[in-house]
């Protein structure tokens, strides 16, 4: 374990924030402990290398269009919500009308009616099963804590 006081003083030294007393204390620490002195030299060397580097900055145009990129996605998200609500209402209405017409239809033979009913019922059960399985998987996801 490294001396905590040494770490504190060294970081202050790197930030050029040592007071006169702290500077003396730090110098004494280095003078009386060759291991700490070695550590300090090593840390100073890597600090100097890191100081020469910076993360690559994208062009000005990237920053100019950054907010617009987010805004467009927000706008599209809202558009999708509106489209989904509209589609749900429309197809719900169409489905309701179709079922009504289907029930009141006297020309279709009862066997065909039964076949169509069974087909629709089967599709609904399949959909329900898939959705339930998805929910089950999500609830048992080991990574759910980091997937938000």
């Amino acid at each position: 374990m490294i001396n905590e006081r040494f770490l504190f003083l060294m970081e202050k030294y790197f930030d050029d924030e040592l007071s006169t007393e702290e500077k003396t204390e730090f110098e004494n620490l280095l003078e009386n402990n060759s291991r700490l002195k070695e550590e300090f030299i090593e840390q100073k060397r890597i600090k100097e290398v890191l100081k020469k580097m910076k993360l690559k900055n994208p062009s000005k145009e990237v920053w100019d269009s950054y907010w617009m990129g987010i805004y467009n996605k927000i706008e599209r998200g809202i558009a999708w919500v509106a489209v989904s609500i509209g589609a749900l209402i429309f197809f719900g209405y169409v489905a309701y009308e179709s079922v009504q017409a289907f029930i009141s239809d006297t020309e279709t033979p009862p066997l065909v009616k039964f076949g169509i009913g069974a087909f629709v019922f089967g599709i609904l059960i399949l959909l329900f099963s898939i959705v339930r399985e998805k929910i089950f998987t999500v609830k048992r996801d080991n990574y759910k804590e980091i997937q938000r």
Binding site: I2, L7, E39, E42, Q43, I46
Partner: peptide, 10 residues
Amino acid sequence: VMSKLFYVRK
């Protein structure tokens, strides 16, 4: 933070 920084630099 200081201690972790020290070990990462090392």
